[in-house]
Nucleic acid binder design. Sequence first.
DNA 1: CTTAGTATATCGCATTGCGGTATAGCAAGG
DNA 2: CCTTGCTATACCGCAATGCGATATACTAAG
Lengths: 116, 116
Amino acid sequence: MDEALLPLSPQVFHILVALAERDQHGYGIMQDVAARTGGKLRLSAGTLYGSIKRLLAQGLVVELRERERPRDADDDPRRRYYRLTTLGRKVAKAEAARMAELLEQAKRNGLLAKRS
Amino acid sequence: MDEALLPLSPQVFHILVALAERDQHGYGIMQDVAARTGGKLRLSAGTLYGSIKRLLAQGLVVELRERERPRDADDDPRRRYYRLTTLGRKVAKAEAARMAELLEQAKRNGLLAKRS
DNA sequence: CTTAGTATATCGCATTGCGGTATAGCAAGG
DNA sequence: CCTTGCTATACCGCAATGCGATATACTAAG
């Protein structure tokens, strides 16, 4: 019940990468993704909250309880914070490995100018 | 009308990578993808031919005329061969660059064990 | 106290992925 | 032959996903 969910969509993988960085609330993830991609990819509200709902159901992410919230300066009561689970991290790693492999093949076929 | 179609789904990108390797017919692409992923990703017929139809409409791929067919040993008349267009190659490169960037960030967040 | 930005949620639509089915050419063996 | 299994394309309907719009409400600034 873990790598069966691969491959992840780019949108979902972006959410997991954002959460791997730090625990975040939905709107924060949205801004994070936009910032990371230089504004090229903007998750719509429907995609974001729909995906979070699925990730919670699949156990890749959990919602933090009140007292577990990171102590940010502001404490907006509307915010709901999320954290990657062990399974979520495992799946994200598997997806990263899959992408690395695919990218390697793309490189062999002349589809990548620069290198990492 | 080129990077607006990013990000590509993993399935579609796989098809483009397969065609970057060489001109192929649909069923060949299906086997190619399965082989490249060690059987982990298998494009269903619906996904494959549906995607090809879209790729043709978007101009990322063209169908080869009879005389342009690669001279394979067998010449099954049912086969329809496809080739990446210049635009298709450009889009595939843009997607590869996007993935490389994302993977770089995943790596920074501890989501990638090995190196490229 | 009004306006703009933050924050979550849901609805309906469009797109995409997929399994199943249909059709048919091909190759091998009995 | 002719049957069986693999190759090959295509389409159908369903399910899953992404997205824009809308609703609701809290926050901060002026």
